[in-house]
């Protein structure tokens, strides 16, 4: 079986890979590119642990074929911090203890960052609905929502 050659940009780096047709973007990120920060919680788009950004939009990477990524721009959790400087959301998640086991955390951070880029002043309800596709079983979401709201307030205050 001949594999498909894909050229793409991941976290600002030009990247290319070979993939089978039936491999998902998540398979390639995790198994071929060692970007294991995106997690597989369900494989059916129901948990959000594999959330990445493709051309500016949130996507479950388990529901996108790797072959579809040709020419696209992809952002994963690994690209969120700038060197040793955490993104404000990452910092707030630590300060608010917004994670327990941490398996859902990468997907939630990627999704929350995308929200704040679109809506710097979300209501609690908007945050909750935006993140409804990111399951967390440990926290009851309370501290996660607070961390996102606090990041938004801080960012507005700094602007």
């Amino acid at each position: 079986m001949s594999r498909i050659h894909v050229t793409t940009t991941i976290n600002n780096d030009e990247t290319d890979y070979l993939c089978e047709t039936d491999e998902t973007l998540l398979d390639v990120l995790r198994d071929h590119l060692d970007l294991t920060g995106s997690k597989e919680g369900c494989g059916s788009g129901d948990c959000g642990a594999c959330t990445v950004v493709v051309d500016g939009r949130l996507v479950c990477s388990c529901l996108m074929l790797a072959a579809e990524a040709e020419g696209r721009t992809i952002e994963t959790i690994e690209g969120m911090a700038g060197g040793d400087a955490l993104h404000p959301l990452q910092q707030k998640f630590l300060e608010h203890a917004a994670l327990q086991c941490g398996i859902c955390t990468p997907g939630i951070l990627v999704a929350a960052k995308n929200l704040l880029e679109r809506n710097p002043n979300p209501s609690e309800e908007e945050v909750r609905y935006w993140l409804a596709g990111n399951l967390c079983r440990c926290t009851g979401y309370d501290k996660i929502i607070r961390a996102v709201m606090d990041t938004a307030a801080n960012t507005r205050g700094a602007a």
């Binding site: 294991t36 920060g37 690994e78 300060e95």
Partner: peptide, 18 residues
């Protein structure tokens, strides 16, 4: 802040399948 925090917010923490 928890000691394993940075690894978990940056995707570096290694879980079962990682």
């Amino acid at each position: 802040i928890r000691p394993d925090g940075i690894d978990k917010v940056t995707g570096k923490a290694r879980y079962g399948a990682d």
